[in-house]
Write a protein that binds this DNA or RNA. Structure first.
Lengths: 343, 343
DNA sequence: ATGAAAGCGCTAACAC
DNA sequence: GTGTTAGCGCTTTCAT
């Protein structure tokens, strides 16, 4: 259509093409200030005809405003985080703010580097997963002068705002429920991730609840990498072979739990009477398995939603600036793999 | 630590704190030009002590360079795209370039809006899914003066470069394989997505291959939304009830295929002798199911990899600027649900 | 309703 | 090896 062009178009080009000053062109393009309908149309036509795309870099520098929200999460393949993102997007879609995602891959130094990178674009706010960061990262966050929301976990002190659940309490709740349901030989199966603090806290709360009932973890198994479904299957086989009298399997996520469930069904275990299972997250992708795995919702969508609301309220000065430290309460769903409490 | 601060720090602050000119500070911070070790250290110390974070907005405006690569994909929950992202990241991690992701949700106008938004940040390149875009989007792309790579699909004319597979050919290949294996009553189960051009092309190639063997689709069923695993299950039941003599089920993705597989196993179908199944994608998350679903790898990782290589080569002028229109050849894996070809 | 001037924070290009 | 000058393309502010 248009001939080959190297230099991107500037306001000046539109100004010349429309015979209107750069300033007025700028006003039209941003819908700011009074502009007569006639010039408005003229400018818009010129801009469209040229194929002008505004330069936000220059705009941001001049206005000292960047409508970007930095979101730093550990990974995208965890299923958990895409849902958090949806919650965030749903809120930001009604504002001029835009999320920009960075990944830490569960590594603090990587998180620090990504944060540094993102802050150098001067975003209007930051949302990041977890409360554990490097000292440098924490310093950057408190010095940035923008709203910061730490999400997912609330077992600790946030730099600024936080929205999440208590993973320690979540682990404890599941532990208590298992005890109440009469299971006694309990195994834990999870990821080998020293840096997944949320999984660690759940594990701690879990063992604590069992301890209170005089029960110790009967066996445990950890994995790293690979297909979660398959790993769940393999770990379950390992545990059940090594400790045949196990009567409950607690998985650190639903995906490995699903693999374990498929394995147990094939082996003909009587579930949940003889053997109970539970995961964590409430991944609805797993609806459709032969049985519904007991689990606990991590409130992912709501967490994203509330975090974005806090950012929007403070960055834009719109909406209520409500409570800044929100702990949501996840609920256990028993599914078909956790028998009812015994009287 | 540091007292409350509103105004972000500038180069000038570091300059004053270190007693070195702004220009030299800038050089140190970017590792450019010769700077004596002594001043280097002094500047670095000052910057760190102050907690200075460079302003990339100003830097980009001055240097006319932005090390961002815009990546526009339909969705993150599709499992396909996170893998494409990994391929992209693996390449860009070795360069100064950084991917920034935007989502189109399979809607062309949305894609256009996201593209406009991203181009206004003047990225060094664009990677986007598919060959179908609005006219305005196509115009923006060709006027941007930066490398553009359209990925996933190669059945059409790209604006600039492209990397992907021929979905038409993929559908045809699977159709031919099914025919060769002696199946005759074939059903198609897929997403109700008029805008998923790749699924549509696979379907077209598929029916075409069957037609060549004188076979017509015996039944078909489409779904929208919800848990794919569950939907696969439900659709399979619907089809098998409505058309009991079906001997092959072709699914438009592995996830619904997995749901169907679980259903068929429960119902006691003899797979693959009595009933064959196949999906599409090669989602390795599904390893761990009772049987391995026949599928066709979509080369997701490699596509991301090659696309990023093209961008890096052209934007940075490094590496080979090789072929710019790459069609990869996916292979069928029969798994346990597609019987061998009949003699 | 429109325009002119100044400057956002940095870097390219050129001195020294 | 280090400093100076002049913008990058916009928006703010103030004038008209």
């Amino acid at each position: 259509m248009t001939a080959e062009r190297r230099r991107p178009l500037t306001l000046k080009d539109v100004s010349e093409a429309s015979g209107v000053s750069e300033m007025t062109v700028s006003r039209v393009l941003r819908n700011r200030g009074d502009v007569s309908e006639k010039t408005r149309v003229r400018v818009l036509d010129a801009a469209r005809a040229l194929g002008y795309v505004p330069n936000k870099i220059a705009g941001a520098l001049a206005s000292q405003r960047v409508n970007l929200v930095a979101v730093i999460i550990p990974s995208m393949s965890n299923l958990v985080f895409p849902e958090v993102m949806m919650g965030i997007s749903e809120v930001l879609d009604d504002t001029p703010l835009q999320p920009v995602v960075g990944l830490s891959h569960y590594r603090p130094e990587r998180e620090e580097a990504v944060l540094y990178e993102m802050l150098s674009w001067r975003p209007s706010g930051v949302i990041l997963a977890g409360l554990e960061h490097t000292d440098a990262a924490r310093a950057m966050l408190s010095n940035a002068g923008i709203p910061v929301v730490e999400i997912m976990d609330t077992d600790g002190e946030p730099v600024d705002a936080m929205v999440g659940i208590s993973h320690r309490r979540a682990g404890r709740a599941m532990g208590e429920e298992i005890v109440k349901s009469g299971y006694r030989r309990v195994a834990f199966l999870g990821t080998k991730m020293p840096l997944d603090h949320r999984a660690r806290k759940r594990f701690e709360g879990f063992t604590q609840a069992l301890a209170k009932a005089g029960i110790e973890i009967a066996d445990q198994e950890f994995y790293a990498g690979g297909s979660a479904l398959l790993k769940g299957r393999e770990m379950t086989e390992t545990v059940l072979t090594r400790t045949p009298d196990i009567d409950f399997l607690y998985y650190s996520n639903d995906m490995i739990g699903a693999g374990g469930l498929l394995y147990c069904l094939e082996k003909g275990y009587d579930i949940p009477a003889q053997l109970g299972l539970a995961g964590f997250n409430g991944v609805n992708m797993l609806k459709g398995l032969p049985r519904v795995l007991a689990t606990m919702d991590a409130c992912r969508f709501e967490i994203g939603h509330k975090a974005a609301e806090i950012i929007a309220a403070r960055a834009l000065g719109i909406g209520e600036v409500g409570e800044q430290r929100i702990t949501l309460s996840p609920e256990i769903s028993r599914g078909d793999t956790l028998r009812p409490p015994v009287a």
